[in-house]
């Protein structure tokens, strides 16, 4: 009996191996890395990126792309921080933020599924629009639109409680892990997940087999928006204020995290756990950069290089996997 290992598992082992190797390297080279405080902070930051990447990964599996995550984080963050001053309980504001994110996602979904715009251009444009809306609602020094942006500390106690931690473990991390497990279950065990994979693998066949492609696409964007909204609320609660620069660049980082985790742009490959591992990897790299006191611009060079290497690897890995499959089936026929 020969030991068999699936291509999917090989790819997963590669991404997990990368994370472990990098963590080992940092643990051995810097002492500060393994301190519990640093690890909890690392998990908190990866949860912020990870929640956005989680939503984006569902869109990517369905064959689309979502570039509006950063914009949604910006507008939701600023509007929820305004909501906190009404004195509403934190949980209501959380719900409001998630719903607002879902509405932004629904706008994307409408443009793509009903107006038939292309994902890339449409979400790029709505990303601009959402960021602009966020800036419109941001606090200003003299109250006029042309005034300078300022940040205002949030005083709502029940809202700020969401940004706290239990023995160092932040709530946002718990929410992230729970959401990842839930979404993996949804993607693997439910009709929604099955249809999304079908749509991402081959849209036309999926449609002919009776998948409601338009609804499926729109739902993916709604989930992506809701996840970005959730991430935004939790981060604002943690920081105690919202800034106009909130979420800038996160749309691309989320895609990078997905790509590192083994999701393939074009759809049908990879899963939401891949986005989970990819997010940890992205933040691990940043964390290490700070520990080695490298200048911040190395961050851009590293992140760009990671995106290229991961995508190039996947492109080559697809060829390898195909050859392996062909060899296996040939062996089976021979036997």
């Amino acid at each position: 009996m020969k030991f068999k290992i699936r291509n999917k598992t090989v790819r997963r082992l590669v991404s997990i191996g990368l994370v472990i190797a990098l963590a080992l390297f940092f643990a051995l080279s810097t002492e500060a890395f393994l301190s519990p405080r640093n690890l909890f902070l690392l998990l908190k930051d990866s949860a912020y990126l990870g929640l956005i990447a989680l939503g984006v990964s569902i869109v990517i599996i369905g064959g689309g792309i979502d570039l509006s995550g950063g914009g949604i984080v910006c507008v939701v963050g600023i509007l929820t921080s305004r909501l906190t001053f009404t004195g509403l309980p934190g949980i209501v504001i959380l719900a409001g933020g998630v719903i607002l994110g879902a509405v932004c996602g629904a706008a994307n979904g409408f443009l793509i599924a009903a107006v038939h715009l292309t994902e890339f251009v449409a979400t790029l444009a709505t990303g601009f629009v959402f960021t602009g809306m966020g800036l419109l609602f941001a606090y200003r020094s003299n109250g006029r639109i042309s005034g300078n942006l300022i940040s205002k500390s949030i005083t709502n106690k029940s809202f700020l409680a969401m940004g706290k931690h239990i023995n160092g473990l932040y709530y946002i991390t718990i929410v992230w892990v729970a959401m990842s497990v839930l979404s993996h279950f949804v993607m693997v065990r439910t009709k929604f997940g099955l249809h999304t994979y079908a749509m991402g693998s081959h849209e036309k066949s999926a449609e002919m087999s009776g998948v409601n492609v338009a609804r499926q696409k729109a739902l993916g964007f709604v989930i992506s928006g809701a996840c970005a909204g959730l991430a935004s609320v939790m981060v604002v609660a943690n920081m105690g204020a919202s800034a106009a620069s909130l979420g800038t660049g996160y749309e691309f980082q989320a895609i990078a995290a997905c790509v590192v985790g083994g999701l393939v742009l074009g759809g049908g490959k990879g899963d939401t756990i891949g986005a989970f591992i990819g997010s940890i990897f992205m933040l691990l790299v940043l964390n290490g950069l700070y520990k080695f006191n490298l200048p911040t611009y190395w961050q851009y060079i590293f992140q760009g290089a990671i995106i290229i290497i991961a995508t190039a690897f996947d492109a080559q890995f697809a060829k390898f996997a195909q050859k392996r499959r062909a060899a296996e089936s040939a062996a089976r026929t021979a036997a």
């Binding site: 691309f252 742009l265 200048p295 760009g304 290229i308 995508t311 190039a312």
Partner: peptide, 22 residues
């Protein structure tokens, strides 16, 4: 390598931006 152009140029956008302060 058969990579999507938007991913490639997005990555080099970051890399070039990182080279500028050097």
């Amino acid at each position: 390598i058969n990579m999507p152009s938007f991913v490639v140029t997005l990555a080099t956008k970051y890399i070039l931006y990182g080279f500028m302060p050097m």
